[in-house]
Write a protein that binds this DNA or RNA. Structure first.
Length: 268
DNA sequence: ATTAGGGTTAGTG
DNA sequence: CACTAACCCTAAT
């Protein structure tokens, strides 16, 4: 009647694939609304997307969720009519996890990293909203239920730290981020053991001395690099402690607020 | 409001 | 009729 089945076009299919690559399968509404895909998918509902994806992944090659009692035949594929259509059998889902891990909880720092990673990977010019961020992260990482709650405060925190920028309800990476550790130009301290200059008068002594000098410099450089590495480690440690403390503080605040709504708290 | 999954229908050989 | 792709229904979250 009024509904002659609308076959999916190649563009729609591509958009769907790209959408799943971006948000992960299951975030159909999100994909459908994304300005990047909506021009192609405006005629489709989120349910359509889901059904189409089911067909795509259940069809040729991959066995999707939709193989049931219906007799499945091995598909002899006699003729060569479709030989070019299967080209892009994608390596779509399956992204390596950020952190190999099976314990379902993360430190605040790890959350921060995941969020930053997600936002920068999504590369949305107007920033990414909560759902996009969650979608991205959930696609490649199993996260606890509490994650979404934590996400809010993590985002606030990252904004406060000026690592993210909030525009409307979207977040983007701050460009002017001075993450790059300023490497101080190596100062020439006046402790150089010897200057190598007379090239026309190379003696064994000179060579030996040069090698000693070189060895000295190398040792010194190694020492400095070691110290730098230690400093970085220490900085990371301090930052982690700060984050942990911060999240504890936030937790305490939340508890306090909850309590103070219900009753007068008895604090001696 | 959305999603997953089972069911139904139209199109095709 | 058998099969597939598109569409519909509904419980679960």
């Amino acid at each position: 009647m009024g509904n002659p089945k609308q076959k999916w076009t190649a563009e729609e299919e591509e958009a769907l694939r790209a959408g799943v690559a971006k948000y992960g399968k299951g975030n159909w509404k999100l994909i459908q609304r994304d300005p990047e895909f909506s021009p192609f998918l405006f005629a489709r509902s989120n349910i359509d997307l889901k059904d189409k994806w089911r067909n795509l992944s259940g069809g040729p090659g991959g066995n999707g969720s939709r193989e049931k009692s219906r007799s499945s035949k091995p598909k002899p594929s006699t003729d060569g009519q479709q030989s070019s259509a299967v080209v892009k059998q994608s390596a779509l889902p399956k992204v390596k996890p950020l952190i190999d891990d099976s314990s379902k909880s993360f430190t605040p720092n790890q959350y921060n990293e995941m969020i930053i990673e997600a936002v920068s990977a999504l590369k949305e010019p107007n920033g990414s909203d909560n759902r996009a961020i969650v979608g991205y992260i959930e696609q490649r990482q199993e996260v606890p239920q509490s994650f979404k709650k934590q996400l809010c405060s993590r985002l606030k925190r990252l904004v406060a730290l000026e690592k993210l920028e909030k525009v409307d309800n979207r977040y983007k990476i701050r460009k002017d981020e001075t993450f790059g550790i300023k490497i101080p130009s190596p100062k020439q301290k006046g402790m150089r053991p010897k200057q190598l200059q007379n090239t026309d008068h190379i003696t064994c002594d000179a060579v030996e001395e040069a090698s000693v000098t070189a060895a000295y410099l190398i040792a010194e450089a190694e020492n400095k690099s070691f110290l730098a590495a230690e400093a970085v480690k220490e900085a990371e440690r301090v930052s982690k402690v700060a984050e942990d403390t911060d999240s504890l503080l936030q937790l305490a605040k939340e508890i306090f607020e909850t309590c103070s709504q219900d009753e007068i708290v008895l604090i001696a």
